[in-house]
Amino acid sequence: MANRSMEVDQFMAELVHPLKAQVEAVRAAILASDASITERIKWKAPSFVHSGDDRVTFRLAPKGIFQVILHRGAKVKDTTGFAFEDDSGLVEWLAPDRGVVSFPDAKT
């Protein structure tokens, strides 16, 4: 994929995490979903950028936690008329424009 970054490739090569295979699978799915999405390391994990803003950031916590944070960038934005669509029911909504999907183990 042309939108893969060497920085994230290196990070992933060095990553020691029990859910590394799931992290790689979600990374590949995000990058394959839209060629304009790019990636970088932010907050010690892969983050995915669309139209200049980070939109999806991984949280790779100790003890094997893997979370996908869905957001609209670092700065608070007006949420009037905005809603993420979640037909899966997997997203825990922390705010109208910030959600998290948790992967607690390899079975999820």
Results as ranks from 00 to 15, higher is better:
Ile65Trp: 11
Ser102Pro: 05
Ala61Glu: 11
Leu31Gly: 04
Glu24Val: 12
Met6Gly: 14
Val56Trp: 02
Gln22Arg: 09
Ile69Tyr: 02
Val91Lys: 02
Ala29Trp: 10
Met6Arg: 13
Ala74His: 13
Ile41Asp: 01
Ala106Met: 10
Ser33Gln: 07
Ser51Thr: 11
Ala106Ile: 11
Asp105Leu: 15
Lys44Gln: 12
Phe48Ile: 02
Val16Ala: 13
Val100Ile: 14
Val100Tyr: 07
Gly52Asn: 04
Ala61Tyr: 05
Asp53Gly: 03
Thr57Asp: 02
Arg27Ile: 11
Glu39Trp: 00
Phe48Gly: 01
Ser102Ala: 15
Leu70Met: 14
His50Gly: 14
Ser36Tyr: 08
Arg72Met: 07
Ala61Asn: 13
Asp54Pro: 00
Leu90Ser: 11
Ala2Arg: 14
Arg40Tyr: 04
Ser47Asp: 10
Ala95Cys: 07
Lys77Ser: 10
Ser51Met: 06
Val16Ile: 12
Ala25Phe: 09
Val49Cys: 03
Gln22Cys: 09
Phe58Tyr: 04
His71Phe: 06
Val16His: 11
Phe84Tyr: 12
Asp97Phe: 09
Trp93Cys: 07
Val68Ser: 05
Ile69Trp: 02
Lys20Met: 12
Arg40Pro: 00
Ala83Cys: 13
Ala28Ile: 07
Asp105Gln: 13
Lys63Ser: 14
Ile69Gln: 05
Thr57Arg: 01
Arg40Cys: 08
Asp86Trp: 07
Pro96Glu: 10
Ile69Leu: 10
Leu60Phe: 08
Glu14Pro: 08
Ile30Gly: 00
Val68Asn: 00
Phe103Met: 05
Ile69Phe: 03
Phe84Ile: 03
Pro62Ala: 15
Ile37Asp: 03
Arg4His: 13
Pro18His: 08
Phe66Val: 04
Leu31Arg: 03
Lys77Arg: 12
Gly73Met: 01
Met12Thr: 03
Ser5Asp: 03
Leu19Trp: 05
Asp54Met: 01
Ala2His: 15
Val91Trp: 00
Val76Gly: 06
Pro62Leu: 14
